[in-house]
Simulated scan of single mutants.
Amino acid sequence: MAYDRYVAICSPLLYNVFVSHQACSSLIWGVYMMGLVCVFSHTGCMLRVHFCKLDVINHYFCDLLPLLKLSCSSTYVNKLLVLCFGTLNIFAPILTILSSYVFIISSILPIHSTEGRSKAFSTCSSHISAVAIFYGSAAFMYLQPSSVSSMDQGKVSSVFYTIIVPLLNPLIYSFRNKDVNVSLKKMLERRIFL
């Protein structure tokens, strides 16, 4: 989405050239390859771990970190792999998104009309807020030292980024719709006066 916003705002006349089927396919292929490399690396490292503790995972779903807590062998390599891939999977997209928004802001600032500038910023604000909520909660979950993180914090964070963030996305993106804003204002005015 950051690439789409960047091309739509910075090069609107060349949008069909930059956002072609080949470019979209390359982006999708890159994301899937990165995901497959991470999954196979974690799976390969999990094959060397021995489990001799309880067979009940203290979590809402079978996540990697709670699974490693059940191990009775050394999980140093696994935790290092979680930290490395977590850092890569969180900071690479964030830096890409932030750099695209730096270019977007640098192309928006010379716009002289206030309406055009506010329209361009409103197009990007919903995406930035959704990205900040998602990657912030994922970073909180996967980039904490194991000595600091507790299982209860991990449960709350995992519920937040797997359930709450996807539920918030339609709400965040619908605030750009004028009809939704008008309806929300009417609803809030009725509540205040009741």
Results as ranks from 00 to 15, higher is better:
T123I: 02
A120F: 04
I104G: 14
L168G: 11
M34F: 02
V156N: 11
M1D: 05
H50T: 14
I192D: 11
G116V: 02
S41P: 06
K155L: 01
V77S: 13
M1E: 02
C62I: 00
P66T: 04
L47Y: 02
F85H: 13
L88S: 10
N78C: 09
S26C: 07
L81D: 04
V7K: 07
K69F: 02
I111Q: 14
S71K: 14
L98G: 15
N58C: 05
L27D: 07
L98C: 14
D152Y: 03
G35L: 11
S71A: 15
L83D: 04
T87S: 14
V102N: 09
C45R: 13
I163Q: 13
L95E: 00
K178I: 01
G44D: 02
F193W: 02
F18W: 03
R190T: 03
Q144A: 15
F175Y: 08
C45M: 11
S122W: 01
V7F: 01
P170M: 02
L171E: 03
L80Y: 00
K53N: 11
R176L: 04
T162M: 08
V82T: 12
S113I: 05
P170G: 12
S100A: 13
P93D: 00
N177V: 08
K155S: 11
F134T: 08
I9P: 11
F140R: 08
H59M: 12
A2D: 06
S106H: 07
S25Y: 02
H21R: 14
M187D: 07
P110I: 00
N16V: 01
S74M: 02
F91L: 11
G35Y: 01
F91S: 12
C38K: 15
I164M: 05
S74K: 10
